[in-house]
Simulated assay, not measured.
Amino acid sequence: MSTLVQPHWSELIPHAGDMRLLDRVMDWSDKAVHAIAERHGPHDHPLRDARKLHAVHLAEYGAQASAVHAALLATDADESRVRSGRLVSLRDVRLTIEYVDLSKGRLDVFAECLFADARGAQYAFRVDQCGQTLASGRVAVMYSGC
């Protein structure tokens, strides 16, 4: 699929305002999504503390990429509404750094759907910067009303 900017999908996910961490979807298929984040400057990041952005927050990027993917699938399938969900677990999270170097540019966020049904989904995610993997893991989402 072609590149999608935030207005194409931002209203389909529960994140709002500055907590919409992803800027563009570079590519997506029925199994995976590649998104990028470019707005993580040193002074305006909502997850940054007084010093830096801790790498543990990269799991949120993976979770948001998963939410975007699920929303794109639902709209592509012409479902009447996108199901809301809740992050219920993080597993096998691996961090290769302690803090993200915000000066090194964009983050490439990849999410791959491992399993999905009417009750929820499980995704593997990876966050790269300048060709280096900074974080990876799995997220599980349970859809509301299940």
Rank of each mutant, 00 (worst) to 15 (best):
A32Y: 11
V33H: 04
V33Y: 07
H34R: 13
H34T: 11
A35W: 08
A37H: 02
A37P: 11
A37Q: 03
E38R: 12
E38V: 10
R39A: 12
R39N: 15
H40T: 04
H40A: 07
G41K: 11
H43W: 07
H43D: 15
H43Y: 11
D44L: 02
D44E: 14
H45D: 10
H45C: 12
H45S: 11
H45M: 12
P46F: 04
P46N: 04
L47C: 08
L47P: 06
R48Y: 08
R48W: 11
R48V: 12
D49L: 10
D49P: 08
A50L: 11
A50D: 13
A50S: 12
K52R: 13
L53K: 02
H54S: 10
H54C: 10
A55W: 01
A55V: 13
V56E: 09
V56D: 07
H57W: 12
H57S: 08
H57V: 14
L58R: 02
L58E: 01
L58S: 01
A59T: 07
E60K: 06
E60M: 04
E60I: 00
Y61Q: 03
G62N: 02
G62T: 06
G62P: 08
G62K: 01
G62F: 02
Q64R: 03
Q64I: 05
Q64F: 00
S66D: 00
S66Y: 00
A67D: 01
A67V: 00
V68D: 03
V68K: 05
V68T: 03
H69W: 05
H69C: 09
